[in-house]
């Protein structure tokens, strides 16, 4: 994912794909056996693998297999999405499948943090709103949605609903600072100052 020219994430438009259910854990999103791969390259083939394919590899009915949701930019989910294992392979799989933003009722902490590190907004809407969004896309999968992180508005079919996300995440995305390494690295001098004030960093000899 190094080829992104402008890292600023401000506005995302496109169709959506709904996955219903609360507490969907990252073992379900990306089964552990795919963590054996040395790179993230092929993760886009695996999201929800065990729910999408049976043991012989035959596709089962699942939104990620459904032709009508092909090309979706948004993933719609319910509550506490991404709980469990910290594997970044899970958001990597979703991103590489083609999803650019996730809209849901709430997200597990590590998962949301991992998404930000990849420039994927995880935006929260009310339970009623997510219910309506899911219904809308299930009955008309070609509905186009737009999320604007600056105005914190999700719009579709002439409607507007307000979205929520931590201010720090919103800043990181809209300013392009979500790729945090260079930001953090810029402070290395200060890091050393703070570090060597900590008694354990000098073996308690100070």
């Amino acid at each position: 994912m190094s080829a992104i020219s402008d890292p600023k994430v401000t506005r995302i438009s496109g169709t959506a794909l709904p996955v219903r259910g609360n507490d969907i854990d990252t073992d379900r999103i990306l089964p552990a056996r795919y963590l054996k791969e040395v790179t993230f390259e092929r993760m886009g083939e695996y999201p929800f693998y065990d729910e999408r394919f049976d043991a012989s590899g035959t596709p089962k009915s699942h939104p990620f297999n459904d032709e009508k949701y092909k090309g979706a930019s948004f993933l719609f989910v319910n509550k506490n999405f991404g709980c469990g294992s910290s594997r970044e392979h899970a958001p990597q799989a979703i991103l590489r499948f083609g999803i650019h933003a996730i809209v849901g009722e709430s997200f597990a902490a590590i998962f949301a943090g991992n998404c930000i590190m990849l420039g994927i907004p995880t935006v929260m809407v009310s339970p009623e709103a997510i219910g309506e969004l899911m219904q809308t896309v299930e009955s008309a999968s070609d509905t186009s949605f737009t999320v604007d992180l600056r105005s914190k508005i999700l719009s579709y079919n002439g409607k507007e609903i307000s979205i929520d996300l931590p201010e720090t995440h919103r800043n990181a995305l809209t300013t392009g600072a979500w790729d945090s390494t260079s930001l953090l690295r810029g402070n290395l001098g200060k890091v050393k100052e703070v570090a060597y004030k900590l008694p354990y960093m000098t073996g308690f000899r100070g």
């Binding site: 993230f40 910290s86 594997r87 970044e88 392979h89 958001p91 590590i110 943090g113 991992n114 590190m117 990849l118 931590p166 720090t168 990181a172 945090s180 390494t181 930001l183 953090l184 690295r185 402070n187 290395l188 890091v191 570090a195």
Partner: peptide
Amino acid sequence: FGIGTSQVRDVLATQTLAMD
């Protein structure tokens, strides 16, 4: 803190994390 791979990169490169 349990972290993801991009954060592992940040800790390796800076021994710090951006956190809330």
